[in-house]
Design a binder for these strands. Structure first.
Length: 126
DNA sequence: ACAGTGACAACAT
DNA sequence: TATGTTGCCACTG
C-alpha cells in the first residue's frame, strides 16, 4: 500500500504552488530517479483510488503535465478537461488542444535541496 | 519470482 | 516540424 516512492511523489506535488506547473520527468529527477518519469505518472494515477481519503485530497495533481507542457491524460476525456479547467482557474493558459501556453513561464523552480532530502529520507512534514 | 502495464521522455526517422 | 520506436521504473497479479 504505502509505496514509498508514491509518497515521495505526493509530498513533492503538494509543494507545487498555485499558478505553477512541472513535469513528470522533473519530479523524477528531483527525487533522484532520473528515468522514473513513467513511475511518477503511475503514482498520480493511483490517486484516483484514494480520492475518498482526505489525506490525498490536497494533492494538486493538475499541476503536473508532460515535458512538452501538454496534459497527458489521454483516453480519459473527462479528467483531461477537468485538469484543464483547474489550471485555467489558477490563471494558467491552456489551449483547447490541452497544451499550456508559454509553458516555461509557468514552470515551478522546484524545492530547496534540504526539503528534497527530507522527503527522500522520509522526514517530510506532510 | 516474473511478465505485463502506464497521467513519460529521449531518440530516430 | 511531426510521427514512430525504444528504454525506463515502480507496481500488480
Amino acid at each position: 500500500m504505502n509505496a514509498n516512492f508514491y509518497e515521495q511523489v505526493y509530498a513533492v506535488v503538494r509543494r507545487i504552488p498555485p499558478g505553477k506547473v512541472t513535469s513528470y520527468g522533473r519530479i523524477a529527477r528531483m527525487l533522484g530517479r532520473n528515468r522514473a518519469a513513467r513511475a511518477v505518472g503511475y503514482a498520480l494515477n493511483g490517486l484516483k483510488d484514494r480520492h475518498d481519503d482526505p489525506a490525498y485530497d490536497d494533492i494538486p495533481w493538475q499541476r503536473v503535465v508532460n515535458s512538452k507542457g501538454h496534459i497527458s491524460i489521454v483516453n480519459r476525456e473527462f479528467s483531461a478537461n477537468l485538469q484543464a479547467d483547474l489550471l485555467l482557474s489558477e490563471g494558467i493558459p491552456v489551449t483547447d488542444e490541452l497544451r499550456i501556453l508559454n509553458f516555461n513561464q509557468y514552470l515551478w523552480e522546484g524545492l530547496p535541496l534540504g526539503e528534497l532530502e527530507a522527503i527522500i529520507e522520509g522526514r517530510e512534514v506532510g
